[in-house]
Design a protein around this nucleic acid. Structure first.
Lengths: 217, 217
DNA sequence: TAGATTGTTAATCGATTAACAATC
DNA sequence: TAGATTGTTAATCGATTAACAATC
């Protein structure tokens, strides 16, 4: 936030607004999948159908950072992916610790969703001594006692909580203490953390309630 | 949308805006959890901390439908839950079909997240014949051949897809054909459906990218 | 009463959209 | 060239917030 940082190469704002950042992340996700499916070019119209964001808004969001598209053709998937990664500063690798080696933990560990965006699960923990030492994917399950040391050694910024609701708050306290900055909470617990830590609580039921409302009305 | 429907008891709008509906669903989720944790009263400030929605906005959203709070005290959790349920018209039970009896499917079936909001998993399907007939929670896994009949018999409006990415589109086509109106997609596939069907694709990586951006800047 | 928190106003800011010239 | 789609403008609409009187 120092004055020296104000000048950016593209003349854009120093920091993205919440809305723009959220939408860019969304575009990135569908572009990544489109790339997997072999698509080379996308139009703002196609992106709109996949993201439910208005196509004018998409062109507007992107044109704020450069002229990435070709008129009459659309956007090159590959180059748009790298442009958005650059804007979101998520071009690098980021290390994740996963807590809970139950069904949900295993589902997350074996999924591509995080890996596709440079998030690598580098450690899996479980409170159950019987699970410690077993293999989940390529990782050996660790005891929660090792939390502090692992967070330091592996440079972990993000913790994903796939644990029972009652276990979530005590674990969050330990994570905050160990220096984790982002907690992705799959439990239902209402976590209390200091302001410098970000908690995101997954809430599929919220999305469903929302979808249902517009179906019912 | 007929003229006769315009008059509502509270004088509010006929249909909620997207933003209001999304926020109300969010409030409902944390209120439901707060109730579980034994809280009887919440202030707009507390709701704000849990939902990351500005407290003024919360009071504004709620006051559009009535005077639910007590000055100097806050909102009664129980009564606010029922008020919001009434507004969102989700006071009743809704039947869900779950597709995929892998780790993710099992995690969803054993979770409270949907049950807490009146969503009941009434059928679980899997493409693997070896899994058909086995028990997951209280349900017996069914073959996908039974899809059409089950959707009709069980009055299913919502389908939750916890299947491999390649299986998602063919399955979505069958679901649309069988009359399902809301598809909750946990795969990475970019689903194509007719406009009258709503697809919501779960995207934890999007939320993580977003959180990370604000951490890095 | 004193303290706390709601309900509401008024002002601002950003998101959204239609429309269309530019151009591939 | 003809068709398609971007980049951009201009106008509108809704979201957001600070502030504070009302009142529990």
């Amino acid at each position: 936030m120092s004055v020296g940082d104000v000048t950016t190469t593209n003349g854009g704002p120093e920091r993205l607004s919440l809305g723009v950042a959220a939408r860019l992340a969304r575009y990135l996700q569908v572009l990544t999948q489109a790339k997997k499916e072999g698509k080379e070019t996308v139009s703002s119209q196609e992106l709109s159908e996949w993201t439910h964001v208005n196509s004018t808004q998409i062109r507007r969001d992107l044109s704020g950072f450069g002229k990435f598209g070709k008129r009459g053709v659309g956007y090159n998937v590959d180059s748009l992916v790298s442009q958005i990664r650059k804007i979101l500063r998520t071009a690098g690798q980021h290390n994740i610790a996963l807590f809970g080696a139950g069904h949900l933990g295993k589902a997350i560990a074996s999924s591509d969703i995080f890996a596709d965006h440079g998030f690598r699960v580098v450690a899996i923990f479980d409170a159950n001594p019987k699970k410690v030492g077993t293999k989940v994917g390529q990782q050996t399950v660790r005891a929660v006692d090792d939390l502090r040391q692992t967070v330091l050694d592996e440079d972990i910024v993000v913790a994903v909580l796939a644990v029972p609701t009652t276990a979530a708050q005590p674990l969050a306290d330990e994570l905050v203490d160990a220096g984790v900055k982002i907690i992705f909470n799959y439990s239902e617990a209402l976590l209390q953390v200091p302001p410098e830590v970000t908690v995101h609580t997954s809430s599929p039921a919220v999305d469903l309630l929302y979808a249902l409302y517009f179906y019912l009305t």
